[in-house]
Amino acid sequence: MNRREFLRYQAKGVLWMIAGGSGILLPKRLIAAPVPDIAVVKGAPAAATRAAVDLLGGMKQFVKPGDRVVIKPNMSFPTPPERASNTHPEVVRELVIMCKEAGASKILVLDHTLARKELCLERSGIRKACNPISKKMVFALNDDRFFKATDIPEGKSMTSTDIMKEVLKSNVLIAAPVAKSHSATGVSLSMKGMMGLNYDRRVMHGKYDLHTSIVDLCTILKADLTVIDGTRVLSTNGPGGPGKVLKRDTVIASTDMVAADAYAVYIFEWYGKRFKPRQVRHIREAHKRGLGRMDVENLNVKTIDL
């Protein structure tokens, strides 16, 4: 061992000590039980939803007392839960309950529907499920006065759009999509679902590239928590269906929209085949642009069966 090697050895030791020592200063749970990047729970809709969020540290990690929360499910189609075009009402309700437990001051379940709003709210079953908690919670906000022009600083093609004011006012955004296929974008999950929170979606198809503008939109509508309802998966003919519905009793939760979407692409069958997340262009683009990670094989996935 010469002097140079000795110094290098010493330096390594110092670095290790710093690394080890810093652990004492960091929050305890990081060392005790690492929070998974993706939580996957198999079970009944409500129970699986709660367990998946708990695996990420519980709703209190995301919702602080007094927070305003917006939950964005899929409820844009006038179809019942078994068609899997809309998020399961029990998944939505459980999220609402958990937000309430965490002390949220206001919880809104919002979408901008395609079909007549009353029919969508009624048939999806979401309004009925949430009514016992509050009758003023589930809204389809379709009028333009509910939207406000908003810049997208990181937008590559779409640099501004009208976003729902209630979302801009909220502290916490929870994406709660159903897992479904989509004839234009392959899948419609948390990222595609954000198109329910802006006003003019036509330009995203016509003026811009759909995939790129979805990623643009997600740079300003980055969900704090994503809970994908894979209790039923609309595996073909999405987003409206009717298509082949797979009963999968799975709920996926993550703080990373891209990772949650990527994992849903990865574990479910689409049109009878298996796909890699990179085969969905908006997921691939979001990964490249650093919005989140689609390399699910490198992520810490925690799966439990209830």
Partner: peptide, 17 residues
């Protein structure tokens, strides 16, 4: 259903992928 097998998988391609 829960089985991925079946005839109703569409037209042999997955749109959007």
């Amino acid at each position: 259903g829960s089985k991925p097998e079946g005839k109703d998988w569409g037209k042999g391609f997955a749109p959007g992928f």
